[in-house]
Amino acid sequence: MSGTIVIAMQRNGELLTSSFEAITAARGVKEAGDTLAVVIVAADPQSLAGPLSVGGVDEVIAVRASDDFQPDLIEAVLDDLIGQRKPALILVPHGVDAWSFAPATAARNGLGFSTDVLALRREGGDLVATRAGYAEKVLMDIDFPGKETVLLTLRTNVFEPAAGQAQATVTELAAPSADIATKHEGWKPPADAGGIDIPGAEFILSIGRGVADEANVEQFLELADKMGATLGCSRPIADNGWLPKARQVGQSGRLAANCRLYVAMGVSGSVQHQWGMKHVENIVAVNTDPEASIFSIARYGIVGDMFEIAAELENHF
């Protein structure tokens, strides 16, 4: 019941950055004398062992298997490690692969468990994790009374990736025998962005009813063009026939799936609109009403007139 194990993740033999973030998180709650081991399952795990020997890692456990993601195999590896080493803590990056195997492992082994953890610390010796709830409206501190082993998945891009060479020993493990029920058949890259492509757009300028009149829509098309943005809109704008329906963002429109910057002008931020854009990392809201709900999800807010801001913005592009 001691020691921490981090599960490093790779895709096509390349380590995911989030693996290094998990190492940082592990160090942060490590108790004196505890060992920190990193597990990597890959076709050539030895070649990844070197890069993983960072940030105070004591041991890299290299499991030779396929580069393909096979949840059954990782679970078998984990079952064995839990049985043999009884680690106090297992950390995994909260990526799509972890979604497959982490809950299965936790449930089968009766572990303490939580997912999408944002922060980790010790309070009087107890491990306390923080995660969000109710669509990020609240945070909660959780602990794991009576659990000898705790498995947590960690939100990505929260912890700094570990750096700094360590002197980890490398233990090579043979892949355990496992009943593998899945088979990798190939990749499908994201759809090509052509024409009006809200789901594919990285930068969206979106307008809502604040635009007031069909004749005003044109200038935002022009501005978007100038700034290299894709123009999006709220539903009333599409319903009026002022912009094609393909530009509508939201529950009954499109999801801004790949957007990194979303500038919403004259959009109040209804739940239905938010459905399509709330997840975007950088949301800028321009609205005359300081209480508009769009400000509660925006990273930057401008209380102001969208026409004035748009006119001034043109001076910069």
């Binding site: 692969d97 029920a181 990798h184 058949e185 499908k188 759809a191």
Partner: peptide, 12 residues
């Protein structure tokens, strides 16, 4: 998967 990439997989 992350970034819109998809993996094709068969499953029992």
């Amino acid at each position: 998967l992350e970034g819109g990439l998809e993996e094709v997989m068969s499953i029992r």
